[in-house]
Design a protein around this nucleic acid. Structure first.
Lengths: 343, 343
DNA sequence: CTGAAAGCGCTTACAG
DNA sequence: CTGAAAGCGCTTACAG
């Protein structure tokens, strides 16, 4: 590997000047700058980022973290329930690397856990972290909130001196779903909000209840089916409900992946959608419009979510100030899985 | 941040000894080791990984790369076609970080491209790279193959002094799909192999043709529909085929995501599956069993794929030798989207 | 505008 | 078994 030393020699200057030329310091004459640039080109020099980071006492690397509750599920790789976040990760990766930062997933401790998470990050001198924190109870959330490490949370309301968050307006989303269903004449609506120990599950459920309340209705507790976020859980919850009773005319699933399980169960029972039962989801995954029937859903804008999270983080890193949090509106997307309530 | 200097002072030894104790050198007495460990604990010391990497002239970070052909599509984040790889990335992340390596997505050049990719990696002193290389033509593949940077390719047969690969046996997979369909009595089978400019697309198509040939049949060129990998492309290809002719009794889609588009088109035409048309996919995504009807498919073992790729890479990094490539068998998974050919 | 020197926080022959 | 010293490849006050 060629070093700045060699560039300096070839250009007939000191390493200090090479460094200045490279970092756009004003204090270097146009003539020597040219000479240095030529030397760099002819040698194919690329600065050693590791050495730069050490010398500068800072880095341009951002850590990414996904905090979920269930270690076991993480191991299985069959994380159907996280398809939405997979898309977010993808968008975050693009935003971060396009901004000239490296993205980083830190190594785990020997036991497979993340050990002393904060110290791991600090020892690697990361500049900041984007954390998708589904599970509220993860101790790493508190650690990050209390730390000086710039952090942006997605889907969790972590806030601190150096921490802010970005999330969807799930409350409003829940209300919209109910208002839409009510307007179609549905009155007996089953709600499968996902895991209500997670913020988005709790908010979506509450939003649904508020939507019902505004119409003077109260959600029937027996029609609220709490489960985990997986397609499979929703499938089983639907089967169970179907065995108990069939008086509901609509199901609001906590996510599109859950809705896919609901649809599957309904198909197996030969129930026509939406003639007999309407189904609505949350998220608007890119596969949702290809489901059978194409799924009506409440859309989360994952592009805005991802990009604004990254932008806020970079602001924190580069400007030093902590931006306000952002709550992103959701949007009703009507497709073919919902229709008027049967008479 | 506490440094080894402070630990040394507290323990009454030199920094060199602290370093030795930390790195498990045999040459340090049990007694001083204890003293150092105590000092570390009481100070909460964590070594600066950046400084370690610089001093050691090596690192424990592995870069991840996804080489796809279509820059435009990458920007859209609507990468339905890459759901399979999203799962692979997830499994790779787990395997890498559990092995005590950091995972790394390098920053892009200012124009949003990856610029001089190899130099970027080298300037960050990564130890090796896992590359999912869908597009054969990406110049970065050649660059990596020719370099000394340990590399494992997934889904592309890159091989070199310091490069090997892991992939599914798509050829055999294609044959299996055809043999199964033939055995069900199908003779007029439409093949939508995905993008045949990509290795897996070409292999799957060839495998299908071989399967047909073994039964003394030749694939009807008009029933081979080449398109891109997306759900949408497959949807449109199916619609187009349906408008032209309806004499086929089965469709082999190049991936499960494509199959989802095929199913959607068939549903819109009111065609019963599998009574009128059978559908088979490739991959076995975790959502495939929830499709309507549950999808018959040829499974790729992404866990084996991911884990063996990471293991090979770590072998290369730590042992210095380049392991042989691995071709993983595929497996037929029969569900409800296939049935006997109509009389 | 430019260079010499110190420093970033480790590691690793080299001596002893 | 342990320490002093040099080195990894940069950056950045400090002088001039």
């Amino acid at each position: 590997m060629v070093t700045s030393e060699q560039v300096a020699k070839l250009a007939g200057v000191s390493r200090a000047t090479v460094s200045r030329a490279l970092n756009g310091s004003a204090n270097v004459s146009e003539e020597t700058r040219q000479r240095i640039l030529e030397a760099i080109a002819s040698l194919g020099y690329e600065p050693n980022v590791v050495a730069q980071n050490l010398a500068r006492q800072r880095s341009r690397v951002i850590a990414f973290a996904l905090f979920t509750d269930d270690q076991r599920k993480l191991m299985e790789f069959e994380q159907t329930q996280h398809y939405f976040y997979l898309g977010v990760i993808n968008a975050v990766e693009h935003a971060i690397t396009s901004a000239g930062y490296d993205l980083f997933f830190p190594a785990r401790a020997e036991d497979g856990s993340y050990g002393n998470y904060l110290r791991t990050l600090q020892s690697r001198r990361v500049a900041g972290v984007i954390a998708i924190s589904i599970a509220q109870s993860d101790p790493r959330i508190q650690a990050l909130v209390n730390s000086n490490l710039p952090t942006v949370f997605i889907d969790n309301m972590g806030q601190g001196k150096r921490a802010t968050y970005v999330k969807s307006d799930n409350l409003h989303g829940g209300r919209m779903a109910m208002e839409y269903l009510l307007q179609l004449g549905h009155r007996r609506i089953a709600i499968m909000p996902g895991n209500t120990a997670d913020l988005s599950g709790a908010e979506r459920l509450l939003g649904c209840q508020q939507g019902l309340a505004k119409a003077g209705l109260v959600a029937d507790p027996d029609l609220i089916c709490v489960s985990d976020w997986t397609t499979e859980d929703a499938y089983h919850a639907t089967i169970k409900l179907l065995k108990q009773r069939r008086d509901f005319t609509a199901i609001a699933a906590g996510s599109d992946m859950m809705a896919m399980g609901v649809l599957r169960a309904l198909h197996e029972y030969g129930i026509r959608i939406p003639e007999e039962v309407s189904v609505i989801g949350f998220d608007d995954l890119d596969i949702s419009r290809f489901m059978e029937p194409p799924l009506t859903t409440v859309r989360q804008d994952r592009l805005v979510m991802s990009q604004s999270a990254v932008q806020k983080l970079i602001t924190m890193i580069e400007e030093g100030e902590t931006p306000a949090s952002l709550t992103i509106p959701m949007q009703l997307v009507v497709r073919a899985s919902t229709g008027p309530a049967p008479a």
